[in-house]
């Protein structure tokens, strides 16, 4: 992996994200139009759907066809439980433990 490429990614994403946070702080005098608000609300879900579709096939380790299924099941079960940011963390840890177990067996 080229260091220059990674630095470009860090720089560009940092500047873009800073502008997204800071510019509204300077110019937020009117609410966003309703359609824009709905579009912005949908982007994270669309992004996650796209990311999962792209990454799921590569997340399946060869020789362990159950890993992804179990990982998805554990994450989903934990995610639907109520209670703030700790549940996604618990989901990630559970999935990592499942992956570890399947690598060992």
């Amino acid at each position: 992996m080229s260091s220059v490429r990674l630095l470009v990614i860090v720089g560009a994403t940092a500047v873009g994200t800073a502008l997204l946070r800071y510019l509204p702080a300077l110019f937020a005098t009117r609410p966003a139009p309703h359609r824009l608000e709905r579009l912005l609300q949908a982007v994270p879900a669309a992004a996650l759907g796209a990311l999962l579709t792209q990454s799921a096939p590569t997340a399946l380790p060869p020789g362990h066809p159950l890993t992804l299924t179990l990982a998805l099941a554990a994450a989903l079960v934990l995610a639907v439980r109520p209670g703030g940011v700790l549940w996604p963390v618990a989901g990630a840890v559970a999935v990592a433990a499942t992956g570890l177990l399947l690598h060992w067996t």
């Binding site: 609300q41 949908a42 994270p44 879900a45 669309a46 996650l48 759907g49 990311l51 999962l52 990454s55 799921a56 997340a59 380790p61 890993t67 992804l68 990982a71 998805l72 554990a74 994450a75 989903l76 934990l78 995610a79 639907v80 549940w87 996604p88 989901g91 990630a92 840890v93 559970a94 999935v95 990592a96 433990a97 499942t98 992956g99 570890l100 690598h103």
Partner: peptide, 25 residues
């Protein structure tokens, strides 16, 4: 290697949280 799978798990948990907050997404 085991932690590598946690990225997919986090995507799923974030997605479920997003959909739970706003089911139409």
């Amino acid at each position: 290697d085991a932690f590598g799978i946690s990225i997919d798990a986090l995507f799923i948990t974030l997605l479920v949280s997003t959909v739970r907050d706003n089911p139409r997404t």
